[in-house]
Every structure is written in C-alpha cells, then in structure tokens.
Design a protein around this nucleic acid. Structure first.
Lengths: 369, 369
DNA sequence: ATCAATATTGATACCGGTATCAGACGATAG
DNA sequence: CTATCGTCTGATACCGGTATCAATATTGAT
C-alpha cells in the first residue's frame, strides 16, 4: 500500500499565473491583492487567467511574510462536554465572522497536555489564544508566560489562574452557587449535599482545611464550593464535611458518593450538583435507592440543558451563558490582535437560575437526634 | 486604543541561534533536526544555545518547504450538537496521538458555508479533510472535487453524498431505524409518528413522493426514514403521510408537529425521533398535552445520552458510536496522508439499540373507525 | 515638441525554515 | 609524505507569497 504517494498537487502559484498571463509576478500579486496600481486591462486579463487556472492563494506563504495567520488557538478540557461544546460554538461563530479559524486542542484537564498544546499552537503561529486552563495555585505557568512574552494575545475562559493576570471571561460561579444553595435553604433544607467538590485523597476535616483545599482547586470548582459555604454561613448552618464529595469527577463516582451520603445517619435532604455528569450521577443514585425527587430529596444543579426541562418533574438548574462566554472571549482576543491595548478586562457573565420543580419546600420536622 | 501594537515577538530564528552559537545556519538546522552529521561537541553547544535563547521552530516556515502542515481540516454542521461534539472528540484524540492538529469549521448545514470552509482549509494547506457534508443530490460538488484534484485526502462522515464516491465512515442508519421501529411494531404499535422527516414545503402526498423526497434529502435523514418505511412495509402496515413531520429542525417545531399529530382523529401511539432535539421536542409536546410515556404514548429515538438513562421512566434509545466515527475517520485520513492507496473504504458502524422503558406493549383493542 | 509628474510594471529581497552541494579538515593507507 | 576517503561545515537555492524600489510608459502642461 504505502507506495508512491501522489503528493498534494498544489494549485498554481503566482509565478505560474504570471507566466501564463505574460506579466511579472508582482503585477499578478497586485491584481489579485487589489493594492498598488494596475491598469484596468492588465488586471482583467490577470484575473481571467487566474480564474482559468483555478488559482488559490497559499495562505501559509502569505502568513510567512505578513506574520499573520488569521488563526486562533483554543485550549479546553474536553470538547465533548456540553459546556465546552457550547463555548466553542460561540467562539467559532464570532471568530468566523471576523475571518479567523480555530485550531482546537483538548487537555483532559492535564497541565502537561495544556503546556504541550500551548507550545504547539505558538509554534503554528496562531494570532491569539483562548484557554480554559487546568492550572491551579503553585503550578508551573511558564507556558502562559511564554505566550505573553511573545505578545500573543491570550484570554482565559471559565477559570481564572492564580498568579497570572490576563484578560478573562468567566461566570459568576460563586454568586450563582450561593443563590442556588440559598434557594434550597429557603425551602427549609439544612443538610445539602455538594456533589463534585475538589478531588482530595480524603475528606477535609473542617472548614479550615476546606478553605485551603479550595485555594488549591480549579478556580471554578473552588468558587462554586465557596458559594455553597457562603450560603450556609449566611443562614447560620453548620458546615458538615461529610456532605461534600471529594471523589474523581465521573458520573459513576458521583453516583457512589451520593449513595454513600444517602446512607448517612442524617442524610442530606437536598443536593447541589456542579456539573452535568454530577447531576446525572446523582439522579442515578436516587433511582437505584428508589428515591424520588423532589419528594424525597431536592435537586438543583449547574448547566441547564434542554433535557432538564422535560424531566419529570423538570429540574431547577443554573444556566450558564456558554455561547456568550465563547463569543466574548473571541471578541476580546481579536480586539487585542487588532491592537487594542486598553486595560486588562475581566468579564464576569451572570449565570441564571432557572426555576422549575426539583426543589421542594420541606416542612420542618423533628429529626432523630 | 488601537495605537502602536506590539507585534507578536517571534521567538529567535535559526539564523539568530546560528549567530549566537557562532556556526552556520545549516549546522543549527542539522543539530536541531537530528539529521545529517554534526560533531558531538558542536551539536551539544548548538543545543545549549538554542535552549538558552528559547528557540522554537516556526512550523509555518517548515510547512512551507516540506509541504506538510500536520493539520487536518474538519467540517461539520454544528459543534454544539452532542453528536458532532462526540465525533470531534474521537477525531481529536486520534489526531493528537498521530501528531495532527484540527482546524474546525461549522457550516450550520449550509452548502455555501461548506464550500467556503473547504476552500479556506485547502488554502491553509491542511493535509487532510474530514467532512460531514450538507450536500444533497444535484448539489454543486465542486469543492469536494477540488480537494480530490489537489490530492488532499478526504473522508466523509455521517453522511454519504450522492455522486461523490470517497472514503467514508457512517452509521447503519437505515438498519438501526428499521430495528427501532420494528421494536415498536412488535409491541403492538401501528401508528408511529416519525419526528424530523426531511424538510419540505408541504407533506408528501403518498409513498411515491416520499421516496423521491428521500432521494433528495440529506443522506442520514433519508436513510432513517427509509428504515422506518422498511419496518412498516415488512409488517404490512400502511404508510400514512400525516405521521411524518416535514417541519424545520428545531425543538420547538418538533413539539408543534407532535402536538398536531396528537390532535389527529387517529393519533399515533408511538413516536420515533431521529435526533436529540426531536426527542426533547416530542417530550415537551407530551408534557404540554398532559400525556405520559410509555402509558399514553411510546417513545424511541436516536442519540442516546446519559440523560436518557435517568429519565423517569428511562428512555429506550439508539446509541451511535460517535467517538468511534471520529476515531475511524481520523485513522483513515491519516493513513491516506501517509500514502495508503488501497481501495476506497466505506466504513459502516453499527448503532446499538439500548432497551429501556419508554416503549410499552400495547394491547390490541378496537379502534374507532 | 519638450519636460515634469504620474501611472504601470518587473526585478528582487525577504519571511524562516529544509535540503543540496561543494569545500575544508582530519585520519588512515600506501 | 602524499593520495584518498569520510566527516563536518557553511553557502546557497528553494517554498510561495508580500513589499519595496527602480525602470519604463503614459499623460498633461507649457
């Protein structure tokens, strides 16, 4: 098989068009590029010849001299995750409108892959970068610094990274979480499970350790947990470490952790889930234990989806403006490319709590001590 | 703002490294590229200098001479669609493993955008293309032909395009649909709504027109409808055009169309939905009419998702091996790039019917005539 | 008709790599 | 001590565009 490969037949070059048209290369370039001055008959002739030959400019060569690739590099955790898919959609739409293409790489939340990705994109001379970084406090940020040093505009999305100040577009995770949890507290819940806390080898022992765990977590994760704590604190509810998961972030692990909480002497009466798969895992756990929402347990989670509205009963959820995040990020990075050197921008887009019917008011009744 | 832009400071070039190391450019290239022969001390010295200067190769320049970009172009309808997101994940994973990056463009199912996308990608000298084409019978296929003419490997995914034979990776849509519909027929259903038939200005009048509509539809859509017809025919059930939607493909339109069917004198007792949003729209319609599945109406649809398993009751669905489609497509196109010139391959991956509980056996009872 | 000003054009250097080629050097053999 | 061969090295021609510059052609003015 691997025999004489027919190497990609590049389309005719400017030189070939020039030869065919009987003019110099520069004249062809001018006619095609529409700059400089070319007599009308010559231009028409050149254009005709170019069309006849099916001439197409080699963007690589152009980028070579102009230093502009009209390409944006996008680095995110997982394209298949509905949140990132939505963000990508937003990025893609506005990038296209501005004449930019997207080179997309995913990192699976691994810093090493992120570093490699940024390196690759920089080597490919992207004009700008949009990154959902996996970096947490204390991590090696050299790849981001290299981008900065090269003056390649970079905007952070979804997560801020401590120790690296750059343009960013994120959601108000903390406030959104606080609002969501408060909704449940207002409905009379005091024991609220938090599904998908930061991954640790063992549960944090107290609020103090939890705070430090948060400091070392992925920004968005930390913020959501902080919002949860804010709500509890505000309501004077004591924090119980056994109600925060610390397992790996998979649907299965979420289900197991929830199942475990449900088996507690004083099980939670509500769950706050921070991501789609956490929500699905929680639902699965309820199902296997024969519990129903909102009667047995209330539910409220991040990342609204069309499915949530057709569940029975429909789920109350936090809707993130995913496409908007992408659109804003693209607009900012393209603005920078165009030369906007105004102050660093930190966009915080509001999440929206979509009230449906998975949170039920809980009559305060005497609990077994 | 748009003042003196700090143009991207490109990292040191080979010439600069050469100058700094006090050797010729070729020697640097050899040391870095690890080809030709360089004395050990020189190589070490060059490498050290390169590292000190933070040298990074400019991939563009390399591609310029080698004619290889290590980039694949991906053209699909909508990145935010879970199916395509899954496919992209598969593409991305195997492409990365082989050292390729992905340039992703979406077309919103518009042929014009697809043509522009392919042109752009070709201009950017991608080494290969993966396309979920929006082209239907009779459409202008020149963009695909141009790719072929340039010897840029191309593989079609999800949809075949009539009149253009190329490597392809698709799902056995027709058989999967037939099997799904047969499942419902076996459960006693004879009036089965088909949600998201091809878009037409008005319903097809009879089987004949429907067949011709299918011929002019998007391949995958046509196949699924054909599978539906196959199942009916096989069971000797008469085809009723009023049970096939012809509306635009949005969740809202699906809901309206389903609502309309439900208002028929002889409403369907089951629905077969061909896409996620069609399923959600159908569920929404049931909800607004106060109907429940599977008691009042049975449901079975394409594109299994984690949500389907936690619905109450869980939905019976057709699961497509999305990532596998992407992985196979990437493998094929990369193989072609490497020179594999064996016969055209037409991969057909099997969809899997995931039995859950949204299809209920229907006791045959006398219907009002 | 002559000359300056302007329009049109081709030649050419460059971008940052790769790849070829020939010269310089050292070592070994005779 | 010289011939021969292999190793190591630098110079240089590409790749296909862009951009500058000088040369030529054209035009209008006097």
């Amino acid at each position: 098989m691997t025999s004489d490969r027919p190497r990609p037949t590049s389309s005719p070059t400017i030189s070939e068009v020039a030869a065919a048209a009987g003019v110099g290369r520069a004249t062809v370039a001018r006619s095609l590029g529409g700059y400089g001055s070319v007599s009308e008959p010559t231009r028409a002739h050149v254009l005709a010849v170019a069309a006849r030959l099916g001439y197409r400019a080699n963007t690589l060569a152009r980028s070579m001299t102009t230093g502009v690739t009209k390409t944006l590099g996008v680095v995110l955790a997982d394209i298949a995750n509905p949140f990132f898919a939505g963000v990508l959609r937003g990025l893609s739409d506005t990038a296209k409108r501005e004449g930019y293409d997207l080179l997309v790489l995913s990192t699976n939340e691994k810093l090493a892959e992120e570093q490699a990705a940024v390196g690759l994109l920089l080597d490919k001379q992207v004009d700008g970068l949009v990154i959902a970084s996996a970096a947490t406090a204390g991590d090696d940020l050299s790849h981001l610094l290299v981008a900065r040093e090269r003056n390649t505009p970079l905007v952070l999305i979804d997560r801020l990274v401590s120790g690296f100040d750059a343009d960013s577009v994120v959601i108000n995770n903390r406030e959104a979480a606080r609002e969501a949890v408060t909704t449940m507290i207002d409905a009379g819940h005091t024991r609220i499970g938090f599904v998908w806390g930061p991954v640790t080898v063992q549960p944090a022992e107290d609020l103090g350790t939890m705070r430090s765990v948060i400091a070392g977590a992925l920004w968005s994760d930390g913020e959501r947990l902080s919002g949860y704590l804010d709500a509890l604190l505000e309501a004077g509810i004591e924090f119980d470490t056994s109600l925060v998961t610390h397992v790996l972030k998979t649907e299965g692990q979420a289900a197991r952790a929830v199942s475990g909480m449900l088996a507690l002497a004083q099980p939670p009466t509500a769950f706050f889930t921070t991501e789609t798969d956490a929500t699905v895992g929680t639902l699965r756990a309820l199902r296997t234990r024969g519990l129903r929402y909102p009667d047995d347990v209330s539910l409220l989670g991040f990342d609204d989806t069309p499915w949530a509205a057709v569940m029975d009963p429909p789920l109350t959820m936090v809707a993130q403006p995913m496409q908007e995040v992408g659109a804003r990020a693209a607009a900012i990075v393209i603005g920078r490319i165009k030369g906007d050197d105004s102050d660093v921008v930190h966009d915080v887009l509001p999440a929206r709590l979509v009230q449906r019917h998975s949170v039920q008011h809980r009559a305060v009744r005497a609990l077994p001590l």
